[in-house]
């Protein structure tokens, strides 16, 4: 049996070599070739990240990679993990899997195969070097999710939403003053070309990624095959997280290395000014979400 893996990212994205292909190989090896996984990259099975969830729920593909934030209404608990100060960037993925039962209720419609915490979001700015929330007053910043929007608002800037591929043009012409996104964007979306300042070091949002599997497709496998998928999925989570962190670190490095560009690494004192404000957002969202939200925070933010 061959499983189609829908990947909206380009085929040369580091994730493919770093996590998706190893996942496919592990599945194939553990099942003695009875179950194989074919990766269709660059949106070959349909373009864009937004519809990935539908593709796997409805069964266009058996497996799909997406971000929980693209279908936020379905994953309020998973998205608690993205709030500033909740996830530890280094141990986040392992912490998530140790407490996966707290999230189980959200994965009844699809089978959760992999889940990993992303590198933290940073501020890519066109003209303004940001080292305090005051610098952000009134500036228009593109945000990837509702939670990130709340954080940006708390810091005094104005959140703007637009498709990720529009950021380059919008920042170049000045429709937006900056973008709040993880630092793989230096390369992936070429933001290193249009932004001049990059601020990191504050508590920040970490949008979790996942690989999902169609329920029926999973149910059709034998229990040994299911176990192979589960094991490969968990291993791929760790690999994907490592890949992501390495590329994100590279994104900061190459930004700093570009002539005329500046990376602003906040001091602890400077970061505190941001963290005080974002902590209020975290508290408010936890209260609003209810359910297991507080338990998830307690488990992750040790």
């Amino acid at each position: 049996e061959d499983l189609k893996f829908a990947n909206y990212m380009p085929p040369m994205h580091p994730y493919v070599e770093g996590a998706f292909q190893p996942f496919a190989d592990m599945v194939s090896e553990a099942t003695g070739g009875d179950v194989t996984v074919t990766i269709y990259s660059g949106g070959e099975l349909g373009p864009g990240p937004v519809e990935q969830y539908s593709r796997v729920v409805d069964g266009v593909a058996e497996l799909a990679i997406s971000l929980a934030g693209y279908t936020a209404s379905q994953f309020p608990m998973t998205l608690v993990a993205e709030l500033p100060g909740v996830t530890n960037e280094a141990t986040g993925t392992v912490d998530l899997w140790e407490n996966i039962d707290l999230l189980a209720d959200e994965y009844r419609r699809v089978k959760l195969v992999s889940l990993w915490s992303n590198a933290g979001n940073a501020l890519y700015m066109r003209d303004v070097a940001v080292d305090s929330p005051d610098d952000l007053a009134g500036l228009k910043i593109r945000v990837p999710s509702r939670n990130a929007g709340l954080v940006i608002e708390a810091w005094g800037a104005t959140p703007v939403s637009m498709p990720v591929t529009e950021i380059y043009n919008a920042m170049q012409t000045g429709v937006i003053d900056g973008a709040y996104i993880d630092t793989t964007a230096t390369r992936a979306f070429r933001l290193g070309e249009v932004a001049n300042y990059l601020t990191t070091g504050m508590d920040t949002t970490h949008s979790p990624f996942f690989i999902l599997m169609n329920r029926d497709a999973y149910a059709n496998l034998s229990s040994e095959e299911q176990a192979a998928i589960d094991a490969a999925g968990k291993a791929a989570s760790i690999l994907a997280n490592q890949t992501q962190l390495a590329v994100a670190a590279g994104g900061i490095e190459s930004f700093a290395a570009t002539e005329g560009k500046q990376v602003i690494e906040l001091t602890e004192e400077q970061a505190e000014a941001f963290n005080v404000l974002s902590a209020e957002v975290t508290a408010a969202v936890i209260a609003e979400t209810g359910g297991n939200a507080q338990a998830i925070v307690d488990a992750l933010a040790k």
Partner: peptide
């Protein structure tokens, strides 16, 4: 069918819900 499914699971947009 998807309409009924979306109603059951409460599918909604990201920012405005």
């Amino acid at each position: 069918l998807k309409c009924l499914d979306a109603l059951e699971w409460g599918d909604a947009t990201n920012m405005l819900n």
